[in-house]
Amino acid sequence: MKTSYSEKVHTWGRIWCSLAIIMLMLFPAAASIYYSAWPDGAALIKGLMGVVPIFWTVGAIEAFTYSPMLGSGGSYLGFVTGNIANLKLPCALNAMEIAGVKPGTEEGELISTISIAVSSIVTTLIIIAGVLLLSRLQPILESELLAPAFANILPALFGALAVVFISKNWKIALIPLLFMLVLFIAVPSLAGSVSVLVPVGAIIAIAAARVLYQRGYL
């Protein structure tokens, strides 16, 4: 990757993300000032204690697991706009597959960024439309008829994704896949903590791939 563009992306990314962090704080700060209602220190700490230990760990793990796949521009954007595992990352991987480029190359980086940017814009606009038209959409979206469709969005996404990517890399996928199948069937309650298990799967996959690679199977 040429230094100049990659350097520029990091500079832009750091500026935009620093501003985004400030902007995000703006909402609670503005609400507190406007309504003269700053939180009590004790209540705030108590609330944070219930969230921070888990979510700061998950966030940190996500940063290290997802950013190599998303590329630099994609990460600076994806970590601001969110919904990475269920939207941005599959979108970027699908785009790289269509364009015939690989993650970790400059071409991959660009296609990933374009795809995440488009996805973010579409999502933002659809949610704005959703908020504006909420009273009309709510009965449709919450209808009993559509409930199973939304309940099954992740299986519908990952089934299609798995066919494409696992068929190409089944040797690498086999061991982490078997491990996860056994784990989730044995402990169904883990379904709620899937984001914690993504890095576990990644570490198993990397370890298995390393062994296969060293023995010349890959």
Partner: peptide, 29 residues
């Protein structure tokens, strides 16, 4: 270079595995 590519693919396979595993979480029910 080759290991670098495999490393990224493995990261992704780990992620897909976790989500695919989750889909099977309730089959005993």
């Amino acid at each position: 270079t080759r290991w670098g590519e495999i490393f990224l693919t493995a990261l992704f396979m780990g992620m897909i595995s976790a989500f695919l595993g989750m889909i099977f979480a309730d089959i005993t029910a």
